[in-house]
Write a protein that binds this DNA or RNA. Structure first.
Lengths: 122, 122
DNA sequence: TTAAGAATAGGAATTATTCCTAATTGTGAG
DNA sequence: CTCACAATTAGGAATAATTCCTATTCTTAA
């Protein structure tokens, strides 16, 4: 756990939303201006691999990183792209029963239109 | 529906697995050598938008395209990356009841280790 | 048949990410 | 403490995936 990795982790943990690598890089730069973008990507990849954080991949968007590794769901507004958390549905047992396969984990991404966008549309 | 778009759609529909844009481009080129990579990406994006096909985004992998737009689930081997289809679990009603939110759709990606990789690991 | 609009080819540009190498930092044996 | 070694970083080049631009080529309706 180097200084840089700790800094990146702190930024993710103190953010309320799900940041992109680029956003994390710019915040990190505010604190340690010498930090390199490669360092950010490498540490994000390593921490995601080690399951200290979670990488989120969505269509038509760069990856985002989630401080929460315990299971929970994500819901994304199709209109503005806002990404929010939902409590876990705990589908693992249900899925394993349905499929007969040992599931290591799953990603469930729900699509909706958020209240703000609904107002605008109406 | 131009000749090129039809060609791209035919390639996707006749494939058994989920192809990347690059794979689709190379197959298309066998048939129409003048086709441009931009044409493939543009038409894939348009068809995904129009829900004629479905775009799949996974961590650490380029997007893939699925001929099947009717709901079904995807399961990916964490070891070799093989991506397979599963029948739909029809979680929409359950999710809407849990969340109280109108869900437009969802993507559920399951992670497991496929039989081939299990053998190798053992 | 021709003008207008839409889509393509070709390639440059952009975005997101990874890789390379020299320099720096942290660590443990002496 | 300090030297040497290993690991990590900074900086930037390189790559991968995708989008964008513009001139050209269809297509279609009048």
């Amino acid at each position: 756990m180097t200084k840089q990795r700790q800094l990146i982790l702190d930024i993710i943990r103190s953010s309320t939303d799900h940041m992109t690598a680029e956003e994390i890089f710019f915040e990190a730069k505010q604190i340690q201006s010498s930090i390199a973008v490669g360092t950010v990507y490498r540490n994000l990849g390593l921490m995601a691999e080690a399951e200290e954080i979670k990488r989120l991949s969505m269509p038509n968007a760069p990856d985002r990183f989630d401080k929460t590794t315990r299971p929970h769901e994500h819901i994304i507004c199709e209109h503005c792209g806002k990404l929010s958390d939902l409590p876990a549905f705990n589908l693992k047992d249900y899925i394993e029963k349905q499929t007969g396969v040992e599931i290591l984990g799953y990603d469930l991404n729900l699509r909706y239109v958020c209240d703000d966008c609904k107002k605008i549309e109406a």
